[in-house]
Design a protein around this nucleic acid. Structure first.
Length: 259
DNA sequence: CCAGACGTTGTT
DNA sequence: GTCTGG
DNA sequence: CCAGACGTTGTT
DNA sequence: GTCTGG
């Protein structure tokens, strides 16, 4: 039996930017290298809406892809340090927390991802508490509508003392859906295409109604612990491994030990 | 009034 | 920025 | 999320 | 144990 795992603290975003523009009906966004091991504090694409003005009149809005840093830094922060603790925002308190409430009212965005990782902890009798990473992705063969996820995100803009602008984001979390509860009790909020526009441009109440567990269907399989180290990257990280319970490599014997 | 926090995960 | 604690 | 650091003196 | 960096 598997218990507890982590949260959405690592994911993959490898879909080419042109494909993302098409899927999200968005403009902009720089080229970027595919990332199979996207981690907090790194930059990744987010989708936001910006108003369109014509002769001073607001005539509508359009979707734009931007890069932002994972770990939300509120506009009032004195430093980026807070971003180490704001990679996720709990959906049940996001409207009250000082770090998130402003962004929830005015800066909701989509966070594209091909899938995400969780680290499950095997029970003592099975794995002695080792953490096993698993890969979770949309199962299109089983009916998931999109080739990638759109996480519900919030962004903000922070100005450093020298005036540099930092765009940053966080991923909203909720309780795990039934199909993922075996791996962990929390999960990121995933939005279907039908919810994208409302999440970004609806009222706060309308957006809040979208913050609920998505029940897939998902593909889930164990992957190598190579993903643990953020310096590792590449498609092999999401490949299924067959011996997830194999013990970790033995530490090298130390010369001069008592044994 | 000023000073200080402002966050998430998972923990026996 | 805005709220809480002292 | 995990990995890795976590300290001081003085020093060409 | 706890914080920083990626």
């Amino acid at each position: 039996m598997i218990s507890l795992a982590s949260m959405c603290g690592r994911y993959a975003i490898t879909t080419p930017i042109e494909a993302m523009r098409e899927i999200f009906d968005a403009v902009g966004g720089p080229e970027f290298q595919p990332r199979y091991n996207h981690a907090p504090t790194l930059m990744a694409p987010v989708v936001k809406t910006v108003p369109i003005f014509d002769k001073g009149e607001r005539t509508g809005h359009r979707r734009v892809i931007d890069l932002a840093r994972w770990g939300l830094v509120p506009s009032w922060a004195k430093s980026v340090d807070i971003g180490n603790h704001t990679i996720n925002a709990r959906s049940d308190t996001v409207r009250e927390k000082p770090s998130y409430r402003g962004a929830f009212r005015h800066h909701r965005c989509l966070v594209p991802a091909d899938g995400f990782y969780e680290w499950t902890t095997a029970t003592a009798e099975k794995g002695g508490g080792r953490k096993q990473p698993v890969w979770i992705a949309p199962d299109q063969l089983a009916g998931f509508a999109e080739p990638l996820f759109a996480f519900a995100g919030l962004f903000d803009i922070w100005h450093s003392l020298d005036g540099t602008e930092l765009h940053s984001y966080t991923i909203v979390t909720t309780d795990a859906s039934p199909s993922l509860a075996n791996y962990h009790h929390r999960m990121p909020v995933i939005l279907d295409r039908a919810g994208w526009e409302t999440w970004m441009t609806g009222t706060p109440a309308e957006a809040a109604a979208l913050m609920r567990p998505h029940d897939g269907p998902f593909r889930v399989h164990p992957v190598s612990t190579a993903v643990n180290n953020v310096r590792n990257d590449g498609p092999r990280l999401i490949e299924k491994v067959d011996n997830p319970d194999a013990p970790p490599p033995k530490p090298k014997p130390v010369q001069g030990s008592l044994f």
